[in-house]
């Protein structure tokens, strides 16, 4: 069966200016698949500069890959035209980080919700349009009478972000890209938004790509995770395995640095090798080498392949070279749905 979404060896290189040779590889040979019949929540995690937002931009078709292909229902999204393109725009929706920046302050919430209804001809009458709005708002736990007719400045960050989720839901998408949807929302409201995301997945069969640097929330909503570091996949697998038993030295550092709201779980003792040392980093080998406490000679020579460290876990690290290699193209096979 054709997957809903497929990344085939996607690489994105940003170049600076016309004359400069300096180039940054934001995403380096990433392949992944989301199946149509098995809605899942996949987390793409990493620090700033890891390429996670580039991945979202590529997926939404805002930028084109330098190498490789992105397929939606088997068709390259760069070549979608006419009805197919409209369909792609409708079925792939996004929720972004800043709920304060995405609203036009001059329009009420109704406007924000009626535009997509008109654009995609989702309702035949005003009555039906209103029903669709009510339905979408209720699905994210908002009372329509509380928000309709209001201007964005009259709403809290949590309400705004839920309206964004409702707007996406209105279009009955197949795939939702959520780029740091709760990082600017108060802790007490995060739970509610995450819950609405999970309900979209469970009750409406929508697959979600959850992009975040916050592994605590990822652990709570996602089924599987891909950890990126400077554009490359470091570790991937089932969320339980990766968070509870991280294998790659980078993932271990990341997990060890999570400030858990738990008084008995103290911040880890893993030594942090400062980021400023990155400048002298090796471009040919593993990108984490310069910060890695276990770095070996071969780490500097060629990037490690993905080793299958557990049935549902791979790590790109030579420490595990006794384990079987998983081809990059087959990464999705170890990710549970």
């Amino acid at each position: 069966m054709t997957p809903l979404l497929e990344f085939r060896n996607v690489t994105k290189v940003y170049t600076k200016g016309l004359l400069s040779r300096a180039a940054t590889t934001a995403l380096d040979d990433v392949s992944l698949k989301i199946e149509d019949d098995q809605p899942t929540i996949l987390t793409v995690a990493g620090e700033s500069g890891s390429g996670k937002t580039t991945l979202a931009m590529l997926l939404l078709g805002f930028i084109a890959p330098t190498r490789g292909q992105i397929l939606y229902k088997g068709k390259d999204i760069a070549h979608l035209r006419g009805e197919e393109k409209v369909n792609f725009r409708k079925e792939v929706q996004a929720v972004f980080q800043d709920p304060f920046a995405v609203f036009n302050p001059f329009y009420t919430v109704d406007h924000l919700l009626t535009v997509p209804i008109e654009k995609f001809k989702l309702a035949r009458s005003k009555r039906e349009a209103r029903d669709r709005m009510d339905e979408a708002l209720s699905a994210v736990g908002l009372r329509p009478e509380d928000v309709l007719g209001r201007f964005p400045h009259q709403l809290s960050g949590g309400q705004r972000q839920r309206i964004n989720v409702a707007r996406a839901l209105l279009l009955k998408p197949r795939l939702l890209v959520a780029d740091e949807p709760v990082s600017m929302v108060d802790a007490s409201l995060r739970a509610t938004i995450l819950e609405s995301l999970r309900n979209l997945n469970r009750e409406h069969g929508i697959s979600i790509i959850y992009i975040t640097h916050d592994l605590t929330t990822a652990y709570h909503v996602a089924n599987s995770i891909i950890v990126l570091y400077r554009g490359s996949v470091m570790e991937a697998g089932s969320i339980d395995r990766v968070i509870r038993e991280p294998q790659h030295p980078y993932t271990r550092l990341l997990i060890d640095s999570i400030p858990w709201p738990d008084i008995n779980r103290k911040w880890g003792q893993t030594e942090i090798v400062a980021r400023e040392q990155e400048h002298g980093s090796v471009e040919t080998g593993c990108k984490f080498t310069s910060r890695c406490p276990f770095a070996m000679d071969k780490c500097r020579q060629a990037p490690p392949p993905l080793y299958r460290v557990a049935p549902e876990q791979v790590a790109a690290c030579y420490l595990y070279d006794a384990q079987p290699v998983v081809e990059r193209e087959r990464l999705s096979e170890v990710l549970p749905v």
Partner: peptide, 18 residues
């Protein structure tokens, strides 16, 4: 309520907003 809304390793998948 604030403490209970927090995600920890133990309460996976439990969402308790205020």
């Amino acid at each position: 309520a604030l403490i209970e809304s927090l995600p920890t390793l133990e309460n996976k998948g439990v969402f308790k907003g205020i």
